[in-house]
Nucleic acid binder design. Structure first.
Lengths: 109, 109
DNA sequence: TCGCTAAGTTTGCGACACAAACAAGTCTCC
DNA sequence: GGAGACTTGTTTGTGTCGCAAACTTAGCGA
């Protein structure tokens, strides 16, 4: 059987921390706006608060974003931003996607 | 806060059936070769047999691929191929990725 | 004061990915 | 021809994870 132009192992081992759709949405948002507050992200992604909370926590645990809690007037407000590591991981992820898409372009898909 | 050029909800709701890395690798392989046998896929993806088996079963259940079992000489051989639905789902998925990447290109990532 | 809403977090459950164990048959070598 | 290794997959078990409902804490209005 001939060799494929596709690195299937690379695809199969994509980093799940950013690959997970919910987190990918969060990271993509933060990549374009640099920082955003919890409520804004919730509205953009359409996620429930609890869901967003747990994903944010996981991203923080991975060292991919920072959580800043402060009060704006009287209300609490959590602001999120990517770390350098988070941005790098996202860039690597995008590179992997581009590689895959290039192969598929070549195959007429 | 301004509107993003990014549809985060679309990202957050990517179809997990094909998005899952292991299955994405399988589907991508089948998309470029039209059909492939079990052992070949296993070598390409680096997955264990059991793992591949369960993912294949899930893709079949979703109607995304067909499983053909036959004997080649004395040995059993299962051959896998995408269905029309599987190919369509994969194309839609690729379209979603391209949309995301275009936004990220625009943001200098 | 008594809800009501906002802003998150914690908890619980169902789904899932993964690999080790297993099954069924074939080939090899003595 | 029979013992054991190999090939080709499947089943089972376990730990992880995603998700939303319930809960917490605190300001705001009537």
């Amino acid at each position: 059987m001939r060799a494929l132009p596709l690195d299937a192992q690379a695809v199969a081992s994509l980093d799940r921390t950013v690959h997970e759709p919910a987190r990918l949405a969060v990271v993509a948002c933060l990549a374009v706006v640099d920082e955003a507050d919890f409520v804004f992200l919730q509205s953009q992604t359409g996620m429930t608060g609890g869901n967003l909370s747990s994903h944010v926590k996981k991203l923080e645990k991975a060292g991919f974003l920072t959580i800043r809690k402060e009060f704006v007037g009287a209300k609490p407000c959590t602001t999120l931003a990517l770390t350098e590591a988070g941005r790098d991981a996202f860039k690597s992820y995008l590179t992997a996607l581009r590689t895959l898409l290039r192969v598929m372009d070549g195959a007429g898909l």
